[in-house]
Amino acid sequence: MLLQIALSDISGGIFLGGWETAALTALLVSFGIIALAFAIGIGFGYRELEEWAKNEMYEIFISGLIVGTLIGLINIIFAMSINLAGGNPLEIASSNVSSMILETNGLFLTLLQYNLYLGALSTLKFSFFVPIPIIPPVVFLVIRIGSFVSPWAGLGALMSGVDSVFNVLGAMIAALLVEQVLLSFIKLVILKYFLPLGILMRTFSITRVAGGTLIAIAIGAYIIYPLAVIYSWNVYSQFKAVSTPGNPGDPAGHMILENIKWDIKDTINTLTPILKNFVIIGITFFLSIIITFSSIRSLAGALGGDPDLFGLARLI
């Protein structure tokens, strides 16, 4: 149960040619440089250099501790998250997001069909003419005075509203798809590439902060983000059960008759739960992002990384 994450899962693979060897080599090289600096400090009586070497030695030991206890530490945290989630958090989160996508897709399809029907109905035009014969003494003429009528042209306003909801639903699906792809990406990439690279970079003083930041991103993305998604799914389910029990909205049920009778009240009432759905999915999406980013910032500070990385990300 404990060893959920095997050594091969976080192996550096091709990129570092075996991160364990690279990390140990980096530690030894750093140790050599610090030892040299310490010797120079002692030999020439440079107290400041001696103090710096002592500080760096302490950091090397911390990095060594991280390398040595990495697997055990990650496994313990992962086991805790399994306990919290009731299963593999990544798989549960992925399945939750798939459920949300499925529900939203159903609404998307229904709304599209409703929109198509409404669009066709609102543009329906009956054209006619009245022939008026003119019988002068010499010539017989027929003048046609024609016009057209669009009885349901006013439904165009409703159609604009439905268009907005439709676009909002589209944005919702896009956000959920991105969440799903991110979960798959994190599952495949984070432990194999970012975590070993972060450990390696943390070993050297000049790349220590970047390495600490990478380790924080790796742990935050692999452990915190799936838990945040699961938490937001629970929030969404609870809210849906209370505010919109059963089917969140079936506009197609009110398709034909009510709109022909120019009765749009039921249609608007049916669209409201869809909007509520969007709001709660949007909130939960941002909630999971905020939880993840805040955790990464705290972890980055604790591991000696840069907690202000989001200011840097604005450059993109």
């Binding site: 599209l112 929109n115 198509l116 029907y117 409404l118 669009g119 066709a120 109905l121 609102s122 543009t123 329906l124 035009k125 009956f126 054209s127 006619f128 003419f129 046609r144 024609g146 159609m159 439905v162 268009d163 439709f166 676009n167 589209g170």
Partner: peptide
Amino acid sequence: PVSLGVGYNQQAGLRAVAVC
């Protein structure tokens, strides 16, 4: 005919999809 007939845009709703 245009002067005596019925016409409609059967895919008018696709404008919303175009926005997406």
